[in-house]
Each structure stands twice: as structure tokens, then as C-alpha cells.
Design a protein around this nucleic acid. Sequence first.
DNA 1: CACGAGACCTGTTCGC
DNA 2: TGCGAACAGGTCTCGT
Length: 271
Amino acid sequence: MPELPEVETICNGLRLGGFGQPSILGRTIREASVFWPKSIATPSLDEFLGLLPGQKIGDINRRGKFVLIELDRHVLIVHLRMSGDLQVRQEGDARATHDRVEFVFSEGDRLVFNDTRKFGRVWLVEDVNQVTGSLGPEPFDGNLTGEMFFSMLQGSSRQVKPLLLDQGFLAGLGNIYSDEALFLAKIHPLRVARMVNALDAARLLETIRQVLQEGIHHHGASIDWVYRGGDFQNYFRVYQRTGQPCIVCQAPIQRIIVGQRSTHFCPNCQC
DNA sequence: CACGAGACCTGTTCGC
DNA sequence: TGCGAACAGGTCTCGT
């Protein structure tokens, strides 16, 4: 589900408030409850429940697709995987069907990790690097240049689509945005990374940044996620447009499976 | 090292 | 209407 733009949207909502939810910066956790123990990656359930009370929320940031919630003595990290979400409930609000973990604030309202498919995970660690240490660079990292991206691609004999999905290569891209970026860069998803020339590599980094920026601007894509107001799904150029005409050349958009994932591209524009 | 299959889960949509 | 198959924004592990 959420890729970088959706995670960014969620972080911004928690940090700044909006869409009917208050900011949770500065809130103190009174107690935590876990309704699906497997949602907790580390530490043990007992430690997790014991360490949280009394800790205050400092800042909230994103690294790749991870949500980083700074507390006094730890960092609370959440990965939403396919169906996770972070929501704020008011005091007295009933528990929702797929609430897995909740953090009750001293004011009585609470932050809830809701996750239909139970793939999401929560970590409570002292050092963020324990969890995000193996991630590749952030797409918007100002130090990441076209030339650097070119040499990163040169170093791999893998096909570009699976490579873009590899969080250790670049952090934050998922299935939607990688298809969209490859389309704009006119690069076939099966092209071997090493065969992408310097010009195409620089262009790909630009289109990656472009589609992520568009996604953030539209508050993410809401396929079954309407409540947060994201509407990037209305601007997909290839994703989920199988058989429909390419917006550039009218050729029907094709769907293939690459690395077990649906992959959409224009067989005419991308080579 | 790279790739494919299977696992982890629930819910919705599509075809017959 | 019913029912099974296919599919979904992600990632890990295992075998080849």
C-alpha cells in the first residue's frame, strides 16, 4: 500500500494535524495496548508495553517507507507494509475492526496502528539504524546526483524494475511510483540496469523525483483509502491502465509480471 | 549474485 | 445468487 508519498502524507498529518486530526507532537503516552502481538517486531511484548508509558513524542519523520516517531528515550518506528495506517481517535471513539496497536495519550485520545492485512510492523529501539540501517539513499537527497545514480545503476546486472523496488538500492519507491517513473523516463522495466546510459539514468532520477513529488502534492494515491483525501490515483499514466491507450502514442498499455509484481508499461514508448 | 516461489494476511472484484 | 480464482500499495526466506 503506502509508498513514500503516502507515508509522507501520514507523517505530515500526525505532525501538523489536518483532515480532522490533531497534531500529536508533544503528547505523552499514558499506556499502550497490543491487539495483534505479531505487529510488534521488537522488543518483546512485555518490554514494549513497559517502556512506553511516560514517554513524550518529540518529532515525527520519514525514512524510506518507515515512520519514525521520536520519543524521550526511544524511537517508535512503524512500517505500514500493504494495508497499514496511523490514525488518531478521540476519547470514547470505539475500537475499529483492524486496530492492531494503540497508544493512549494522557489527554485520553490515542494514536492507533490500523492494519487490515497484518503485514505491518512496529519497532521500539534506541538507535534508528537498527531498523533503517540497510536502506539506500533518499530519492530527494540533495547529494544524490544524476552521475551518482548512473554509477549505482552501472553496478547492477539486475532488471531496473526490481532494482527500483529494492529498498537497499533506493528508499521509498513501490510498485506504483516505479512504473510511473519508468514510463516518464521511457525505460522498459525489464532493461538491465547496467545497460542504462548516463543520460537515461539522469532522466530516470528526475522522473522518480517528479512522480514522488506529484504523489506528495496529491496527498498520495487512495485506491481504497479515500478518507485521507489522496487523489493521485486519478493521475496514473500507466499503473492499472492495462489495455487503455498510452497518453503519448495511444498504444495499449501492457501488463506483465516482474518479480511477482504487476508491472505496467507502454510497449511502444519504453525500450 | 540474481531470480522465482512461497509465506505472511484480509478483503474486494471478476468470471462462470 | 454463489463460489472460487485472481488480485492488492511490501518484504522476508528459501532453494536453484
